[in-house]
Design a protein around this nucleic acid. Structure first.
Lengths: 132, 132
DNA sequence: CCGGATCCGATTCGATACTG
DNA sequence: CAGTATCGAATCGGATCCGG
């Protein structure tokens, strides 16, 4: 029962469709934003700086469909809609939060690497070895 | 010195460009594939089932630029090119592996949620609450 | 042959304008 | 306020070609 033969490395395995959804920058930021509790659409948009309304709506719909986010629309005027992580979605907070922290903690090394890559003059190839 | 003011939630923070690169399904699968040691281009292509040559080449170049992957080209006939994780790249193995395992372990609940979402008939809205 | 560059169609992204 | 509609722009991704 704890022996899943799912394998994301196989192109046709359904688990890959799930990986595609969660291994995504907008998904990561939205899950991080929702990890402190329910938020309204506009509040998520503020928290996830730079996201467009369309992409936020699309991503939230996909996350709701996958059972990661719960959407609650209240029939009021003006309309109020709240989004929150489901129990399943809460299990994503740790791995996706880790990704966000990785990006923040290692960005200086990444920027250094980019500098070295962009400014490299194809040096004297070490004999049999060519780096470019 | 251990007080980074980097914040992926800010649109202009450089760390977000790094998050965009690592929060990606191809990056995740390539890092997982390389976690057991160096691989040739063709071997990665086999391991990451379904990836096209172009996308693999593009992603590997971006990963090399960010200092996550090291590329070594040997001047032989036929040409041989090997890719491996750098020390920085190896620190990504755990968080990205966790994402892959999440997709495999929770895919059944995700598939169930998708079924429920796709087959739902807009039930009798609970008074003030509308789910669709 | 292998690695990857090029070309090009298909999808996705994202800003603006508009509706309940 | 919380979306949807529409439409260029940008990116993704597959088939094909090329150099070593």
């Amino acid at each position: 029962m704890a022996t899943p033969d799912w394998n994301v490395m196989l192109a046709t395995c359904p688990s890959r469709t799930s990986l595609a959804r969660i291994a995504n920058k907008w998904t990561a930021m939205i899950v991080i934003a929702l990890s402190d509790g329910p938020l309204r659409f506009g509040a998520i948009r503020q928290a996830v700086d730079g996201i467009s309304g369309k992409v936020l709506a699309d991503t939230l719909r996909d996350l709701e469909r996958d059972g990661i986010v719960l959407r609650s629309a209240y029939n009021e005027m003006p309309p109020r809609v709240e989004y929150e992580l489901t129990e399943l979605g809460r299990t994503l907070h740790e791995p996706l939060g880790a990704l966000g922290r990785w990006a923040e903690q290692h960005i200086e090394r990444v920027l250094d690497a980019r500098d070295r890559y962009d400014n490299r003059t194809t040096g004297p190839a070490a004999d049999h070895l060519i780096t470019a």
